[in-house]
Amino acid sequence: MASVIEVALAPAEEQDLARACAAGDRAAQVRLFRLEVQPVHRLLHRVLGATPALEDLIQESFIRVFRSLASFRGDAHLGTWIARIALRVAYEHLRHARPAAARLEAVPDLPSGDPDAERQLVAREGLRRLYRILARLEPKQRIAFTLCAIDGQSQQEVAALMSASLVATKARIWRARREVDRLARLDPLLASLIGDAPEAAR
């Protein structure tokens, strides 16, 4: 299979593509899948970490997308609409099966201007431990926090993606941040990364 190249579509093209997919046009469905599979993968990866269920969840997301495309009205970008569906799938996954902590080998390399390999290793281990903490959060708090802190979305964008009010979203992010902060301070490595010594060491 050829490598997937992500190309942004104009709104009118998005509408045409969505309609063709909704009409059962297989070529259009394949095109949409190939356009959106990497963004969906990135989103789910950031929210859930490197879980073995990631491929299943991507597949489930797209099946729901294709089943629901007839209801796509074009109020939002197609990519945003698909992201909402993927997040709903992620939420159900978190609710029904608490994921294990991210595997070390699955944590990606972090880009760093610092060529120091040891520092990069520490960053990877820190990220792995962070996902272990995230696994202890309530699913909605976790999704809101990861979208904001790891996926880099604004609070407004997170609210829109989660179909929640801004106030509720802020509260979720704040509670998640507080819990992550509390748990991170108990971990020597994470505590050193955020600049504080662990409470146990005080």
């Binding site: 599979v37 993968h41 950031r46 491929e55 979305q153």
Partner: peptide
């Protein structure tokens, strides 16, 4: 980690994409 800064994620491999498709 600051907001707006996205954690890089390695792209899904072609084999995985084909499997999912």
């Amino acid at each position: 980690m600051s907001a707006r800064e996205r954690t890089p994620v390695p792209p899904l491999g072609d084999a995985a994409v084909a499997r999912i498709e």
